[in-house]
Computed example of a mutant assay.
Amino acid sequence: MLCASVCHTDISSTQGLSDNFPLAPGHEGVGIVESVGDQVKNLKEGDVVIPTHIGECQECENCVSGKTNLCLKYPMRVTGLMPDNTSRMSIRGQRLHHIFSCATWSEYMVSDVNYVLKVDPSIDPAHASFISCGFSTGFGAAWKEAKVESGSSVAVFGLGAVGLGPISGAKMLGATKIIGIDKNEMKREKGEAFGMTHFINPGDSTKSASELVKELSGGIGVDYSFECSGVAPLLTESLEATKVGTGETIAIGVGTEPIVPFGILSILYGRTLKGSILGGLKAISDFSIIANKCQKEEFPLQELFTHEVTLADISKAFELLKQSSCVKVVIKM
């Protein structure tokens, strides 16, 4: 078992449409290696790392297929235990769990070395936190899952930190029409900073979000849509917003309902729906590219940084999430 002990900074995020829709705290973080196990060869004390909730062995069937980022050897673990089904953390004799292999929201974490990515030590800690999940998940969904084509049209449902990712990815890939949908009018400015060309506030109309998207796309819908809110009815809306026969929807948002209502006709008309973990990004191969782009300031990540609190004031972060101006809250450890 190869382990590294890490002390780090976490962030919390708003995801998806605002105004009575769910707020989802993120598990993103960046840390400094405090110590390593005697078998760890690729990390040392003092290295700056980003924890991830999936690994990449680069050898298993999935890793070499080029079709998925979900490694079979180092999968996403939701049990809260290490790969050997043990925990490295406890308090007063009671076992604690490593949520998503990350064990974030804490001053110290213990992680399998295969679930951390070493980054340049000069990287902005807050920006490194932003790319460890939220923003990168959305960016990867446009880049790796949808493979948005130059000249295409895109709709993004929910302009939290996740939703701003596919906007940025679509812009980089040459999409010419990028429509952002959010009930929070303040997200218009954020969307435009990342490359959005059109904004829809569904609260300003009696028409559905998909109808409003079609009005902006010649009545036929967009080529790609990204559902980033986790709001159950918007899964069907995001499909309906795409073109009959060729439209593709990537589901990224996770809500509180394990089973959601779904309009079967939306997909019978030849549209495609695909789910995504971490936007299809591979933990080593792709994340290193994202980190490099972050280091070169190719993303306007400063637009995400709206609030900051100390760990002692973490309860305040949950209140800040409810504010319409909030995108990301940095929690300083």
Rank of each mutant, 00 (worst) to 15 (best):
I11C: 03
S12L: 15
V40H: 01
K41T: 13
N42C: 10
K44D: 14
G46A: 04
T52V: 12
C57D: 08
E59N: 07
C60Y: 05
E61S: 12
V64A: 02
G66Y: 12
K67L: 09
K67W: 05
R88Q: 15
Q94H: 14
R95D: 12
V110E: 08
Y115H: 05
V116N: 06
L117G: 12
P125I: 07
A126G: 01
F130G: 11
C133F: 11
G134K: 11
W143N: 10
W143C: 02
A146D: 01
F157T: 00
P166E: 03
G169S: 05
K171S: 08
N184D: 00
M186I: 00
K190I: 00
K190R: 03
S205L: 06
T206Q: 04
E211K: 03
K214V: 08
E227N: 02
C228A: 13
L234R: 00
L235H: 15
E237V: 01
E237W: 04
G245C: 13
I252A: 03
G253V: 05
T256E: 04
I267S: 03
L273D: 09
F287E: 02
I289Y: 01
I290H: 05
A291K: 05
E298P: 09
F299S: 01
H307G: 10
S315V: 04
S315N: 06
L320T: 10
L320Y: 15
S324L: 15
C326D: 11
K328V: 07
V330M: 01
M333A: 09
M333Q: 13
M333W: 14
